[in-house]
Simulated scan of single mutants.
Amino acid sequence: MHGPFNRGGRRKPMGEINVVPFIDVMLVLLVIFMITAPMLTQGVQVELPQVTSEPIESQEDREPIIVSVDREGGYYLSIGGEEMNVDLEELGDRVIILLDRQPGTPVMVRGDRFVPYGEIVTLMSTLQVAGVANVGLISEPPPRD
Rank of each mutant, 00 (worst) to 15 (best):
Glu54Val: 15
Glu90His: 08
Asp24His: 12
Ile97His: 14
Val51Ser: 12
Ala133Thr: 12
Gly3Ala: 11
Leu30Glu: 04
Glu72Gly: 13
Ile56Glu: 05
Val51Arg: 08
Pro4Ile: 09
Leu40Val: 11
Leu27Glu: 13
Gly43Arg: 15
Thr41Ser: 15
Asp145Pro: 11
Gln42Met: 01
Val25Thr: 09
Arg71Tyr: 06
Thr36Gly: 14
Arg144Phe: 07
Leu91Asn: 06
Arg11Cys: 13
Val95Thr: 02
Tyr117Gln: 12
Arg7Tyr: 09
Ile66Asn: 04
Gln59Arg: 13
Gln59Gly: 10
Val135Arg: 03
Asp145Tyr: 08
Phe114Arg: 10
Asp93Gln: 04
Leu137Cys: 02
Gly15Pro: 14
Leu137Met: 11
Val44Ile: 11
Gly3Phe: 00
Gln102Thr: 14
Glu72Trp: 06
Glu60His: 15
Gly3Cys: 05
Val107Phe: 02
Ile96Asp: 06
Gly136Trp: 07
Arg144His: 03
Val115Gly: 02
Tyr75Cys: 13
Asp61Ile: 05
Val115Leu: 04
Asp87Leu: 06
Phe33Asn: 09
Met1Val: 08
Asp93Lys: 03
Phe114Gly: 07
Glu89Ser: 13
Thr105Cys: 13
Ile79Cys: 05
Leu98Asn: 01
Ile17Ala: 05
Lys12Arg: 09
Asp145Glu: 09
Thr126Phe: 00
Met34Leu: 06
Ser139Val: 11
Glu47Gly: 15
Met1Tyr: 09
Thr36Cys: 10
Met34Ala: 09
Leu48Asn: 02
Phe114Met: 13
Arg11Asn: 15
Gly81Cys: 01
Val69Ser: 13
Leu137His: 00
Val107Gln: 05
